[in-house]
Amino acid sequence: MEQFKSSSVEETIQIGFEFGRELKPGDVVCLNGDLGSGKTHFVKGVASYFGIEPEAVSSPTYTLIHEYPGSVPIYHFDCYRLKNEQEALEIGAEEYFYAEGICLVEWPEKINSLIPEEAIWIKISHLSDSERTISIHQKQQE
């Protein structure tokens, strides 16, 4: 497990950028954390590593998936509003998981059984209003 501490939005974006260096096409990254913990800012950092402007990245809460064309395509999921896994299947979520892009999934617990076993899990936790811990695991934590 790797663990980082962030004291600002900019630091969270930078940690995401550095993490992006380790990713390759086909990777699935699951982001756990409360509302407002910084999941989307982390995604902005990962996307910026692949040449996508951070300002272009927003939470796909109402569309479920945003696709960002970069040096490697980024597929940004937000499963918060899903009622069940069937809804994810209907929009083709599984095809994205096995495509040539990188999938970043917010609220992955909503589609737990669809997540590939080799997914990388990240937990972002509030320490205070401005501080977060970012923990990166190779397996889902119980």
Rank of each mutant, 00 (worst) to 15 (best):
Q3M: 12
E94K: 15
S128P: 04
M1Y: 03
E55D: 15
Q140F: 14
Q141V: 15
F50S: 08
P69R: 15
S71I: 06
Y75C: 01
E10V: 10
N84K: 01
I136G: 03
L89A: 05
T63R: 05
C103R: 10
E11M: 08
V28G: 00
K139Y: 04
F4C: 09
K139T: 15
C79L: 13
I134Q: 09
H137A: 14
S58D: 01
L35D: 12
N84F: 02
L89D: 11
S125N: 14
T61A: 02
F17L: 14
E67M: 11
E95G: 10
T40Q: 03
I120M: 02
R81W: 04
A99F: 11
L23D: 08
I52N: 11
R132A: 13
N84V: 10
Q86P: 00
E118Q: 14
I74R: 12
Y75T: 01
G101W: 07
G92A: 12
S135Y: 02
I74Q: 02
E118V: 03
T40K: 03
R132K: 14
E131S: 11
S48V: 05
E142V: 10
S128L: 13
P116Y: 09
T40L: 00
P73Y: 04
K24M: 08
K39Q: 08
I111A: 00
S113W: 04
L35A: 09
W107P: 00
L82H: 13
E106G: 09
E11A: 06
G33K: 02
S130C: 07
E94W: 05
G38L: 05
I124D: 00
E67S: 15
G36N: 02
E131V: 04
P73F: 03
C30N: 05
S59T: 05
E100K: 09
L114H: 03
P60Y: 13
S125E: 15
Q138Y: 10
P116H: 09
N112Y: 13
F19H: 06
V43G: 02
K110Y: 09
Q14E: 13
E100W: 05
V29Q: 07
K24S: 15
Y49G: 04
N112W: 12
G92V: 11
I120C: 10
W121Y: 15
Q138P: 00
S58V: 11
E22N: 15
A99Y: 13
Y98F: 14
D78S: 01
V29S: 03
V46F: 07
S128F: 12
W107S: 02
K83H: 14
V105M: 02
E87A: 08
A119P: 02
E90V: 08
S58M: 04
Y62C: 01
S128T: 05
